[in-house]
Design a protein around this nucleic acid. Sequence first.
RNA 1: GUCCCCAUCGUCUAGUCUGGUCGAGGACACCGCCCUUUCACGGCGGCGACAGGGGUUCAAAUCCCCUUGGGGACGCCA
Length: 495
Amino acid sequence: MNKVRTRMAPSPTGFFHIGNAKTALYNWLLARQTGGTFILRLEDTDAERSKVEYEQVVAEALTWLGITWDEGPGFGGNPDRGGYGPYRQSQRTELYRNEAQRLIDEGAAYRCFCTKEDLDAERQRAAGEGGHARYSGKCRALTPEEVAAKGNALYSVRFKVEPGVTEIPDLLQGTVRVDNKEFDDFIIVKPNGDAVFHLAVVVDDGLMKISHVIRGDDHLTNAARHVMLFNALGYDLPVFVHHPLVHDEHGKKYSKRLHGANLLDWREDGYLPEAIVNYLVLLGWAPSDDRELFSPDELIKEFSIDRMSLSAGKFDLKKVQWLNGQHIRRLSVEDLRDRLLPVMAKAGLDVGSKSPECLTRMTAICQEKIATLNDIVGMVDFFFVAPAEYEEKGVKKQWKKEDSMDRMQAIRDAMEGVGEWTVDALHAAYQALAEKAECGLGKFIHPTRLALTGKGVGPGLFELAQLLGKETCIERIDKGIEYIKAQCGEAPGEA
RNA sequence: GUCCCCAUCGUCUAGUCUGGUCGAGGACACCGCCCUUUCACGGCGGCGACAGGGGUUCAAAUCCCCUUGGGGACGCCA
């Protein structure tokens, strides 16, 4: 096989779609595992919708995922990278015009003087007759004299579709055959001189020597047009791999309007890029064994086109969450801590007020409990600020019982008595407490948790108390006692 | 409507090419139980699928055909 050259060719017309990410991943994976080249190309031929800031978004999304490109456009005034540039289609218009002219000269394309209005009317009529709209081909037969007679009239360039059958060599789908009569003579250059997508991709893929075109199967029909163009232009045909689209939970193409359609939504929601990479790849590919947890490096090693799936996968939030939790657990504490810091800071927690050791410890006692980075906030907020209020359910259960006050007093005393403030010492103190009262540990642990954190759930109590420090713990127990006096004093619970 | 693609538990899938080892395996979710100071994590168990119909064959989830269902494409968007 010749050197593998794959590309990702998004159009910078908005955010980076989750489906684009999946496509980018397969292209990147193949390039990386074969020692090939991965190319980023910006398909910005639609000047109406393409915007420079969206290019930035593409780069940011790819970078977040850990996808690096070997060739591609320069950003922020930097030069392009790679010997097949430029990598922005808007900078390749000359190339397209020349190739289009070549097609005209060789009789494979022709000028069409029909106006948009003409065509719309034609389409309307066709729709009314139930048939589907297609160009009549009326300019195809224009003689050179007739063309000359048009003078400076605007024209588009159409590709001449010849009768026959076009075969799309697709590594995943097998060879797909389409009868050319399914196509009308499609436009390859707009009247303003800009290339249409079909011409641009083919010229680019051909000239950039792309070996594998891996993309969503919404392009499968387009591929037939592209094959015709490749052949007419005399370029080597790449191998195609059309993979199924990512579907939403209802089985439709994942809509742009859905949360999560924007790849960066996942970063926002506290997901690890490696988890998203893992999930996305698994959505259209399966390993030969039962493993499901893969690091990007492992994916590079294991990925293969022949184990990609043919049917579309619905996006399953629960599974991504699970996978994210798995990846979180696999991180080193320090790594996890560093990823958690910005999340905490963004939530308003003053991380600067804690020592690195303290933050590491905080991370350690939560690592098993969080599914997303964002989950950390509710797990550690009480380390930064004393609880302003207590969870209603907890108060009812822990502080409104007849013996609640006695327990809290006993807890306070026990804490006072703890010499070295360690997890083990605390554990021992509570055990003694429980034994004396002849009940389970929980009877003392839960009221304590409520006083210290204001909540019913969180990290292990002894670990959290140890980190909080003796003084703070006793302070918060006192506050709890005051609260019970004030709120629950006159109205002891029925139990 | 036309063309193209697809079809195994609720979901993602293994198994299909090279029929028998599949009384269909794994994972998420769900439901129990265990562990346990909560929530998680972890462990154990349960529920749960070859879309339907015809063939071919000694034998079909696997091969062929039809039906049905789903998706995608039919732009001077990409």
